[in-house]
Design a protein around this nucleic acid. Structure first.
Lengths: 209, 209
DNA sequence: TAGATTGTTAATCGATTAACAATC
DNA sequence: TAGATTGTTAATCGATTAACAATC
């Protein structure tokens, strides 16, 4: 029983779809037109059964005996994930990390357009940053509301992160990518994803001799 | 039956330990001396039972009626994760991202010392980068073997990432933090962690209206 | 047609939670 | 002592895998 609704689809399934999409992109770039759950599984180190099961939540996108048309499946996954459009993103924090994020081309390439940058350091406000002007935090409310921005990235020190998150949520942001090494407290209607490279490093040392 | 060995401890448990450690750090910084599985669970949005179960894989670190001495538990978790020492890390790629990583103070602060940087662009080789000199990829083997480096970060374009990974593994690297948006093919004795911010963004849009 | 691969069901496996005796 | 919280066991819940009929 395929469905495009949030139905009862496990979040862990949603988490794998972007990975599938990335692998499909690469296959298409390499000139492939068709793939199979088996091939995709090989590439990703995932069982073919899991891939078929995951996809079946959203519809039957393949053909027996043949597999999946790559371009078609990409389109379907983009639809499901709602990344078949451009999302405007607010960036808070214009330090080393914020600057690197503003310069990173990979966001725009894949549908996420950083469209405003905020910082509270006087020496940064008003300075240009990859086509934007860094704005004071005071202007956060007006700008984000005016553009109805729903996504943001937090690249401020851990101490300031919760306060920034609260402000963002108050003006309508519903999805936050948090680079500050701290857990955020947010209401259930807000999604948060965390990026802390040290956490990943610490997860690997356990297995080293 | 507590154990410090890789016993049969699920990787998903190992994955949560660094998160616990980070929360404990913060509590200690805020002047707390004792905490409980309930308090920790509140902060992290995890059930207290899960925290107790996770910790019990490694020993009894708490006291009934009281909870956990924060400093003591931190020490134990650092021991388990093997982050009670300094790890040398090789960085490959000195572009925007590599530069930002080299400048990021959070690694050294938490026990990961970037101790060499490689790139194959002629105009970068020999240039100073946060105290290092960017080395040619040719020197990767000598340097990494000489220092017995076991961890590396890959910050090169997707096209080059697999080749770089192969080289690193060939000279003894056993844990890789991969920033290139591509799945790496590695032998089972090598751990890989992935950081691709776009994947996290795409995982959140599904839930937005 | 014969071979291949899907979508789906049922079986297995593993992770989370609830509950409570032990005890600080 | 009374109250609180651990460590652990058993029960529940959910995710993964195996298997196969359907069919391209």
């Amino acid at each position: 029983m395929p469905s495009n609704l949030s139905d009862n689809i496990p979040d862990i399934v949603i988490g794998r779809l972007p990975i599938y999409l990335r692998a499909l992109n690469r296959l298409a770039q390499d000139g492939h037109e068709v793939t199979s759950s088996h091939e995709l599984g090989q590439i990703l180190g995932i069982s073919s059964a899991q891939i078929r099961k995951d996809l079946s939540h959203f519809g039957g996108f393949g053909k027996q005996g043949t597999g999946y048309q790559i371009v078609f499946l990409e389109e379907k996954l983009r639809q499901v994930l709602k990344v078949n459009r451009e999302w405007e993103v607010a960036l808070v924090g214009a330090g080393d990390l914020g600057t690197a994020l503003a310069h990173y081309g990979g966001f725009a390439e894949r549908g996420f357009k950083i469209s405003c940058v905020f910082d509270n350091a006087k020496e940064k406000i008003g300075k240009p940053l990859n086509g934007f002007t860094v704005q004071a935090l005071d202007e956060l409310e007006t700008t984000i509301k005016a553009r109805a921005i729903k996504m943001a990235m937090i690249a401020v020190p851990a101490k300031a992160a919760q306060e920034v998150a609260d402000k963002l949520i108050a003006v309508g942001v519903r999805a936050i990518l948090n680079y500050a090494p701290i857990n955020l407290n947010v209401p259930p209607e807000v999604r948060v994803q965390y990026i802390d490279p040290v956490i990943h490093m610490q997860r690997m040392t356990f297995y080293l001799p």
